[in-house]
Structures are given as C-alpha cells and as structure tokens.
C-alpha cells in the first residue's frame, strides 16, 4: 500500500519532469524537469532496496550532471525562450508516426508474451544493493578475499579506461582551436562569427 502511494506520487513527478524537459521553451526549465525526474527515479531505487545506486543517482546525476548541463546552458547563453516551430518539412509527422509505432510495438511485445520473463508472478525477491555487495561484485579478484573472482571486473576496468578517454577527449575539445580556418577567414574578413562555413 505504501509502495502504491510512493509509486503514484513519484511516478507523477517523474512524468511531469520528463514532459517538462521536452516541452520547456527555456532549457533551464528543462534541466529543472530532468532533475525532478532523476530524483523521482532515485526514490524508486530506494524502494527497490538499491541504496547504493540511489545515492549515486543523486550525487552523480542530479548533482554533477545537471550542474554541468546548467553550466553549459548558461555558457551557451540560451537561457532565453526559443522558437519551437518545426523547420524540417516532414520531421514532425514522421516522428509522430515513429512514436506511435513504438507504442504499438511495445504493446505487441507484451501481448505476444515476449515480456513474460520480466513480469514474474509471485512476491518480489529481496536483493539488497548495499555498498559492500556492490563492491564485492565489482572488484573482488579471487580466492584470498574468500569470494570468487568477480565477473564484472573486466567491465569495471574498461569503464575506468573509458572515463580517462572521455576526460582526455573533453580537455582536447576544450583546447581545440580550428586555427587554420580562423586565420584564413580572419584574413578575408575580420568580423567574428561571420565564418558560418560552407
């Protein structure tokens, strides 16, 4: 019963936030909507006893990522209302058809029983995603710790590599100046922002 209430409340918040993301003319409001959705999901995670994931969700997503988004929105200077009219001729009808198609496809999948393996009958089993549990699963290396080697060890290391690459990439992008083009266009006409490209 309690869970039903939480589901209803937080579900509503999540949906509202999501629609806010999509509908808001001003990206800042969009970011706020996204943050609301992320918090609502964090609550669901707690309900599912995934405490560690919930905490990470709040800190990394609702905290760091949203902050980064807001920072970029401010930097780019689009904290102003934008035009929502469509410029690509067939984009909107096509998109709508595709979305309807997705709904139909999802329904078809459920009806044909392709989702039965997900929706199990009976009581939900108890899995606690405590920090110890998660840690053991991520990085236990074998016998000395008394557990078998984690099957997530390799993906874990791979993600660390991914993060390094991403960090390097972001820094490289930050330092990148299309020098030659700037110089060339600078010689032709000195006006900034006129290099709208070919």
């Amino acid at each position: 019963m309690v869970e039903l209430v939480i589901f209803a409340l937080m579900g509503a918040v999540a949906l509202a936030g999501a629609i806010g993301v999509v509908r808001a003319r001003n990206p800042v409001y969009g970011a706020m909507g996204l943050m609301a959705t992320l918090f609502a999901l964090a609550v669901f995670y707690v309900v599912h006893l995934a405490h560690f994931v919930a905490v990470v969700q709040v800190i990394v997503y609702a905290g760091a990522v949203i902050t980064l988004f807001l920072f970029v929105i401010m930097f780019v200077g689009v904290d102003r209302a934008e035009d929502l009219t469509e410029k690509l001729a067939v984009q909107r009808p096509v998109a709508l058809i595709v979305l309807v198609g997705v709904v139909v496809a999802a329904g078809a999948l459920v009806v044909t029983g392709n989702f039965d393996w997900v929706i199990t009958s009976g009581e939900p089993q108890v899995v606690t995603g405590t920090i110890e549990e998660i840690g053991e699963n991520l990085i236990s290396v074998g016998p000395p710790s008394g557990r078998e080697a984690s099957r997530w060890l390799l993906p874990f290391e791979a993600t660390s590599l991914l993060l390094i690459v991403a960090a390097v990439g972001a820094i490289a992008l930050a330092f990148y100046r299309p020098r030659r083009k700037d110089e060339a266009s600078g010689r032709r006409d000195a006006g900034p922002g006129s290099g709208s490209g070919p």
Binding site: V53, V60, Q125, I134
Partner: peptide, 30 residues
C-alpha cells in the same frame, strides 16, 4: 528487473550505464 529476479546484476548494469552516461555528458557537452 533486479528486484523481480533477485539478481544484483541489474543494479550493476545501472552503475555501468551511469558511468557511460557521465562520460558521454562530458564529451558531448564539450
């Protein structure tokens, strides 16, 4: 699904998605 099946693997997957998303945000925003 992790809860429904009693398998912690689902939560692990979420963690990895999180990491990938973080990396994506960093590069994408750059």
């Amino acid at each position: 699904a992790a809860r429904a099946h009693g398998d912690i693997g689902g939560q692990m997957a979420v963690l990895f998605v999180l990491v990938v998303a973080a990396a994506e945000v960093a590069v994408g925003l750059a």
